[in-house]
Design a binder for these strands. Structure first.
Length: 431
DNA sequence: TCTGGGGTCCTAGGACCC
DNA sequence: TCTGGGGTCCTAGGACCC
């Protein structure tokens, strides 16, 4: 029997327990045992993570902070440290890679591992899961839950079943590792009683549609024909859900997927009404996007601008360029042209800019050093000068930090307003 | 009680080409 | 004079995930 055979339960889903909150408590033990909420305290903020003590009051991630404060007034609020979580996530991935190279990260604190090829060396998947969990505790001093199953969806549902419960006194330990199956009957016995919202890909809209057919559990879903589902939800979602309801999930674990878009957006503490400020913000967001593109050595052809009005209506405008760009001034120019077609009178609650249709960066004529050696003259034309400037900005930021240099137009009384990933991650800080 | 920021994937219509 | 079908690209919107 081939240990790598696909009929074995050889996919792990690893999910960190209350990740951001746990990192904060680990790094500041005075928080231990308290209801800790990580997120944006401001009027427009949301909860990023809540400790199990806070969850006992009904607080959970993505909840508006104002509601969380009402539910749990005694909660200790902690500003998120996004860079820190990225570091811990990298350490976590090192531990994953001790097990297998087949790691598919699906968020900062979650991943699928295909251990079918590791079985001969490392043993049964369930044993691998227990050891990995212990290793995460040992090295990172953090809790993780692991689901083990034949397919991705069931592994994900398994890690959910493995999780601790919430109580005012802290987490109530769960099994930590939960195996779904083996065998079709055991899989369906686990899957069919679950509410449809538990299925990855069923959100509020889909659940509401399915309600009309009297569907509440995955078992109810399984009893509908694929034709009915496709008719109600469309080809892709309909067929996919029908398969999932019968525990069929052909998606492989795919490591190192290429990114498809890079963007930045920001919700403002106060709605923007002055078009010149909106234009300045467009440049600021473009600068942040362009910097990340260049760092990743990619460029994009499609510029998309996103606007949200104070009443929360949200829409996008996009334009595809003949050639890819990674230069802030070029992105901002397109973004501003797109914004010119938009009515800004209602005010702007959120502005976003993203680049897609990504590919290799445009051929760069000269580096800063080349340009200097030439007496400061680069390619000469406008695009060439912009590219040279971008190169110089990157060089300076590498040496002196992101806020050392930036477009003059971003200078305000408070200094240079440079955006970085992770800033205002959970909403504006000021009310 | 008023909703963040970073993404992915799907759909649908129109343009354009063969 | 009326009438093709398929494929690809672009744009906009929507659902969903963490």
């Amino acid at each position: 029997m081939d240990p790598g055979a696909s009929d074995g339960a050889s996919i792990l889903h690893v999910d960190m327990d209350a990740f951001f909150a746990s990192v904060e408590i680990r790094d500041d033990p005075s928080l231990a045992g308290k209801p800790v909420v990580v997120g944006g305290k401001g009027g427009r903020g949301v909860v990023a993570a809540a400790s199990y003590e806070a969850r006992a009051y009904g607080v959970h991630s993505a909840m508006p902070s104002s509601r969380a404060k009402r539910l749990c007034p005694q909660a200790v609020w902690v500003d998120g440290h996004y860079d820190r979580y990225v570091e811990v996530s990298a350490e976590l991935h090192q531990l994953f890679h001790e097990v297998t190279p087949l790691v598919e990260g699906i968020s900062i604190d979650e991943a699928f591992l295909d251990v079918s090829g590791a079985r001969r060396l490392l043993g049964e998947p369930v044993d691998i899961a227990h050891r990995l969990r212990a290793r995460i505790r040992e090295v990172l001093d953090l809790g993780a839950s692991v689901g083990v199953a034949r397919v991705k969806m069931l592994a994900k549902l398994g890690s959910e079943a493995a999780k601790p419960g919430a109580s005012p006194h802290g987490p109530v330990p769960g099994p930590g590792v939960f195996v779904v199956g083996p065998g079709r009957e055991a899989e369906l016995a686990f899957l069919h009683p679950l509410p449809i919202r538990a299925v990855w890909g069923v959100g509020p809209a889909t659940a509401k549609r399915l309600e009309r057919y009297g569907v509440e559990t995955v078992g109810d879903l399984a009893r509908l024909t694929p034709e009915v589902l496709v008719g109600s939800l469309g080809q892709a979602v309909g067929r996919h859900l029908h398969d999932l309801a019968w525990a069929r999930d052909p998606r492989p674990v795919v490591p190192d997927q290429a990114v498809k878009s890079v963007g930045h957006e920001e919700t403002y503490a106060r709605d923007l009404t002055d078009p010149s400020i909106v234009n300045r913000e467009a440049l600021r967001l473009s600068d942040a996007v362009a910097t990340r593109l260049r760092r990743a050595a990619i460029a994009g052809r499609t510029v998309t601008v996103k606007v949200r009005y104070p009443d929360f209506t949200t829409f996008t405008r996009s334009k595809t360029l003949p050639d890819a760009t990674d230069v802030a001034a070029e992105i901002a120019e397109v973004a501003r042209a797109l914004l010119d077609t938009v009515d800004l009178d209602p005010g702007v609650r959120l502005l976003g800019i993203s680049l897609s249709q990504l590919g290799p960066p445009p051929v760069r004529q000269l580096t800063l050093d080349d340009a200097m050696a030439e007496g400061g003259r680069g390619r000469g034309d406008a695009d060439g000068v912009r590219a040279d400037v971008a190169q110089a900005v990157d060089d300076i930021r590498r040496k002196f930090g992101d806020r050392a240099v930036g477009p003059a137009a971003l200078t305000t009384a408070d200094g240079l307003r440079i955006k970085r990933k992770g800033d205002t991650q959970w909403g504006p800080t000021e009310p």
